[in-house]
Design a protein around this nucleic acid. Structure first.
Lengths: 331, 331
DNA sequence: TTGAAAGCGGTACCAG
DNA sequence: CTGGTACCGCTTTCAA
């Protein structure tokens, strides 16, 4: 069922129906009423594809995330979505599960949908994909990846600072054997996070350390921790790349009969809700997901009363949140 | 940039470009190669709106969930998405946050997108919305809501059975004072879940009980539990409508100085991953999200090698999973 | 205030 | 094997 049927039923032209649909207040009230009536009677729903095609512009925004199951990503989505809806946009999300092929597919899909803007919140993104997006002239905002350029904004968090604070804090508590648990895209010679960790621990002469990576999940955290412990290394504290993995680490530690924080201190990163609800509550680093979501929208849809951040780079400062999962190292 | 530009550059007609795009192997290899070259050079991406409009069919499936942040919903999404992609479909999700208005908007949006099918996984759905979907002739599958009819399948879980098992199990352990913690759409005189709980506890003469509801979140569980405890009622066990809320209950209990399970037993529902990773691990009821997701796809897209479930009602049997959050009641 | 008609970017049928 | 072309359903001038 289409505009035309509605038009016929209301005894007007399709142009007029289109006008009432778009609230152009040039339509005579009585005509408008008749059209509305026809729409209701026919249970008419405009075809959005035809609309965007004819209109030449889309009011949907895309978001691509590595792991929507991790509340960090979901919180960013929620903030973006809420902001978007408040401004008359819809957002459609894609979840890549850290799979590069799914990333490529998702990007192409978004371009094919001619989204008004695209928020890319993934760990790894190669230059060619970014070029594809630029060539398609899609306004983009990247989280933690790429460099700012025309129509491409960047939001990042000063991870290095967060990690530094954590390491310094643990050092002050007397910890001298640290482990770092990451997931595959945060560990590896090129990863900013691993580098930040290594650079920082190396500043303390008496410090020893290990790193391990696994999937970004509870299970991944658990397995990575088990590997560290089985390796003979006995860390007094474990720094985790995020809260999810930290929760997995807690379980591994307990299964080995270790108490937290008496035997081993554990830290997370992100400060998701769960960090307050697990046992013990996690010492972590707060990342303002709400702000990231809001900034992302502002970067994609320039608006008079929104900060102008299109094409810019924004760096957010993280903040350590102390809770019960860390304590002085046993002497 | 459009088909036409590609056609011009390759020196062929738009029809031919369309053919190579759709892999119709009637195109001469050499022509095909030229077209492919033009496509690559122009960084051409077909406009999906034009495609669905012209093609008259969509290969995207919609899913609407009350709370994607709750891993229960996300797991269903993941299974549906995975199945869909394996069959050449995409799925777009909407998250209503239990807001009826957002539900209506989402449904209309999905109809407007002319999705090939719609999976509705929400708690409350009034008849008029279902009628709207039927009138739009959108194939649907509902989880836990509505009745099967033409083009509308239903998947449900035998909650009553799950609750019964839990109550019987706790009764066997000597518990005589039970509390039920639900969220707003699972508590209330019309809710199947509350009714199941009440019917079951009433079968045991010496049983006392209370119910409380709050938001579907850790925080909601915590607050509901606090209200129960402040009310002077001292439950020896708390049954929660899902694992998320149970985790919140655990925190409330601990904050009150109560040990789990020594002082109070707690049960969840769903058996999400977190149930194994919280402390103590939760006794819960397993709901097969993977199967729900797969069945949902099968219900929407009839396929020769998929079970034929379109328009049917499917009831899944839940299964109790015993873990460390429950124990014999103190005497 | 309303209608006619030219697209928007594809698909698919019909010829050649 | 390839091209011409009539739509798909809606928006948007341009005229009336």
């Amino acid at each position: 069922m289409s505009l035309e049927e509605v038009a016929r039923r209301a005894g007007v032209s399709t142009a007029t129906v289109s006008r009432v649909l778009n609230n152009l207040d040039v339509v005579k009230p009585s005509t408008r009423a008749r059209v509305l009536k026809a729409i209701a009677e026919l249970n008419y729903h405009p075809n959005l594809h035809a609309r965007t095609l004819a209109g030449g512009r889309s009011n949907t925004i895309g978001m691509i995330a590595s792991n929507l199951e991790n509340p960090f990503f979901f919180d960013v989505f929620r903030a973006l979505d809420s902001e978007a809806r408040a401004h008359g946009y819809e957002v459609v999300v894609a979840h890549t599960d850290y799979d590069p092929e799914r990333l490529v597919r998702s990007v192409r899909l978004m371009i094919g949908r001619r989204v008004a803007g695209l928020a890319v919140v993934v760990s790894e993104m190669d230059a060619s994909l970014i070029n594809e997006l630029r060539a398609a002239r899609t306004p983009c905002v990247f989280y933690d990846v790429g460099r700012p350029q025309e129509r491409m904004a960047n939001i990042r968090v000063n991870y290095r600072r967060g990690i530094e604070r954590l390491v310094e804090y643990l050092h002050d508590l007397g910890h001298r054997r640290l482990a770092f648990v990451g997931h595959h895209s945060t560990l590896g010679p090129t990863s900013e996070r691993e580098i930040a960790f290594l650079d920082t621990v190396k500043r303390f002469p008496e410090m020893e350390w290990r790193t391990q990576a696994d999937r970004d999940s509870f299970e991944g955290g658990r397995l990575a921790a088990l590997r560290i412990l089985s390796g003979g290394f006995q860390p007094t504290a474990i720094i985790c790349v995020n809260d999810i993995m930290a929760v997995g680490v807690l379980r591994a530690l307990r299964d080995r009969g270790l108490r937290i924080p008496e035997d081993v201190s554990v830290t997370g990163f992100d400060n998701i809700r769960l960090a307050e609800y697990c046992e013990p509550p996690l010492t972590t680093v707060h990342i303002p997901r709400d702000e990231i979501g809001r900034l992302a929208f502002a970067a994609l849809v320039p608006d008079r009363d929104l900060p102008n951040v299109a094409g810019q780079e924004i760096v957010l400062e993280p903040e350590v949140v102390l809770r019960a999962s860390t304590a002085r190292a046993r002497t």
